[in-house]
Amino acid sequence: MSDPSRHGAGAGEAAAAEISEVIRPAAIVPEAAARTILVELALQDVGSGGLWRAQPSLWSRYDRPWGEAGDPAGSELVGSIHIVHGTPTKYEITIYRVTVSRIGSQLGWSVESLCDEALGHGDLRLQDCPRAVLSTPPAPFRF
């Protein structure tokens, strides 16, 4: 793995770029797993020595803990998982987009590995999550 504090990029790292993927169909985190994941991400908060910052619509993974709550102190964002609480049912969570930063990409992270680390707290992997049911859009309204 590369050193995130290095400013130069080697030949293999030059191609590393931010990766953003819309999860289609969206991944659904069942209620029991969602509760466990939320508790674990809160316990692993960057402000208290962990690597995650869980907000209502975004779970962000950093390369190292923050110096103090609210002060990243040089830590780099590895990636983010965009979520919605309460869909499709009240206690489930929907994952609809995942972004791996340039630094995260250089460190070898992928959309799947980022999700799997967070979802692993609920004994899930992204590939095993139930998927949202996509319905056919309604016919266009005509006068």
Rank of each mutant, 00 (worst) to 15 (best):
L41C: 02
A32T: 06
D45A: 02
V100R: 01
I93R: 00
T136M: 14
A16D: 15
G104D: 03
L114V: 06
T89K: 02
R102K: 15
R24P: 00
C129E: 15
D71M: 08
P65E: 14
L134Q: 15
S2L: 14
W52D: 05
P25N: 14
R35M: 02
E76V: 04
P137I: 06
E21L: 10
L51N: 10
H85C: 00
I81M: 05
D123M: 13
W109V: 03
Q106D: 01
S57M: 09
L51T: 13
G108Q: 11
G104C: 05
Q44F: 05
I37Q: 00
A11N: 13
G79A: 01
L126P: 14
I19P: 05
E117F: 14
P130W: 01
A11M: 14
G74L: 01
F143D: 13
C115V: 11
A54Q: 12
T94K: 08
E21Y: 00
S60Q: 06
W59T: 04
L126N: 11
Y91M: 00
G12D: 12
H82G: 00
V111Y: 10
R142K: 13
W59L: 15
G67K: 10
G10P: 07
A14D: 10
H121F: 15
G74P: 01
G12V: 05
E112C: 06
C115R: 08
E92A: 08
G108E: 10
R125G: 11
L77N: 09
R53F: 06
S110Q: 13
R97K: 09
P56E: 13
Q55L: 12
S113L: 12
E117Y: 15
V133I: 15
P56K: 14
V46H: 07
R131I: 08
A132N: 10
E18W: 03
G12I: 04
A17F: 05
S48E: 09
Q55I: 01
L107R: 13
D116T: 06
P140Q: 06
W66C: 02
E68N: 11
P30N: 04
L119A: 09
I28T: 06
A11W: 03
V133M: 09
E13P: 03
G104Q: 03
G10D: 14
G67R: 08
P25D: 14
Y62S: 08
A73R: 06
P137Y: 06
L38E: 08
G12F: 05
S5P: 01
